[in-house]
Write a protein that binds this DNA or RNA. Sequence first.
RNA 1: GGAGGCGUGGCUGAGCGGUCGAAAGCAGCACACUGCUAAUGUGUUAGGGGAGAAAUCCCCUCGAAGGUUCGAAUCCUUCCGCCUCCGCCA
Length: 420
Amino acid sequence: MLDIQFIRNNPDKVREGIKKKRIDPKRVDEFLARDKKWREIITELDGLRSRQNEITARLSKERDVGLIEEAKALKTKIQNLSGEERIVQDERNGILNNIPNIPFEDVLVGKNETENKVLREVGRRRNFQKEGFLPKDYLTLAEQLGIINVKKAAEVTGSRFGYLLGDGAMLELALVDFAIKTLRKEGFYPAIPPVMIKPEVYEGIGRLAADQREERFFIEKDEKYLVGTAEHTLIPLQMDETREESELPIRYVGFSSAFRREAGSYGKDTKGILRVHQFDKVEMISFTTTEESDREFHFLSDLQEKLWKALEIPYRVLEICTGDMGWTDARQSDIEAWLPGQNAYRETNSCSNTTDFQTRGIQARYRMRSGETRHMHALNATAFAIGRTIIAIIENYQTKEGFVEVPKVLRKYVGKKVIR
RNA sequence: GGAGGCGUGGCUGAGCGGUCGAAAGCAGCACACUGCUAAUGUGUUAGGGGAGAAAUCCCCUCGAAGGUUCGAAUCCUUCCGCCUCCGCCA
């Protein structure tokens, strides 16, 4: 959530910021109206409670029937007013939860994904024409090789699920191992987090706003959500913690399954494993000071590129415009890998600076050298979204015979050069 | 799932109906003192919120939410977490 004090003092900045994100700026005014009402009530309530405390102090010394009578009357008054206070506060906070993080000033303004900006294209695409064959799509190849099975998954579990089998499964383990070992060397601390989370924590990290709730799986009986990514349970590792400035940055590399309802994408990407309800992902998380987060953003984004370069797969980097940014983000960039079978780039990675938007709600703070405490800045960046990375490997490394070469850096894990 | 124990400030830990946001110790910070280190003395150090230009004043918080009471860290209920034992289980 945003800082309430900041919204009060800078309503125009917030209106402008969320408008850039294509969110109705009126939410700010609704918030301010409720906030004003709340402040009136709390001021009155504090006055009543002050009097109550005064009487209590007095009565602890001497009995006074008159004072007890006044206290009794005060008690009902306070009960009624605090009931009202709570309602108004809930209304106010409800609106607050539906205000996204605001983008940095220098972020490209745009209305949707068509206005993202390609920052660079990296890597050489294979010339299949020269090689004398047309590239196939990954699913055709993977089914022939028996390394992906979505048909059986549909029968067993439902649509938008898949099995990785044989060398497909080995590729996943290889990618996980490669990513974690690489990132460990960069100072990331390995973490395998829970994949379920309590509603109040989920809300605290700003991931349950009305706009995104539909995207979550919820287990009613136990009142727990399935996480949409490892980030969701990794960020709260710092919940209620106050670290020393000297301890930052804190970096985790997490591995977990990610669960998404994919509500609102019913007709989209219905084939294969490009868009599924469950996939595994290696994820980077950083906690930094307020000054360092922008630098950390580039650090993470560079590492993402390093991983793709290691796989020797062409990709491009996009600056995400305000209209396409994530709810919690102040800055975002994506990586799209080249898929020759589809003759298109497809999103595989995302890198986000969420500033203190996620840490405020869970009280993750640090103490500056001056003694002042602040909320940490939190960042998250995909290392590998396994399913999509495997798709990119299959399509980019396919052979004329319909086999798949294993990228050099993964060979020692998979144990072979070619999947056939 | 059943039985019991516990949850207090950065940490240890007292308080078990009445000026308690809370003793004491440790740690931290400031100052003083000693030739450095160490030691000692004094003072100081929780978080959140509201009003105010500020000084400052007020309110809330003893795992969470309710309840009893004029008054709750203290009593009652429920929940959450941790620990011990039993059951079940990879």
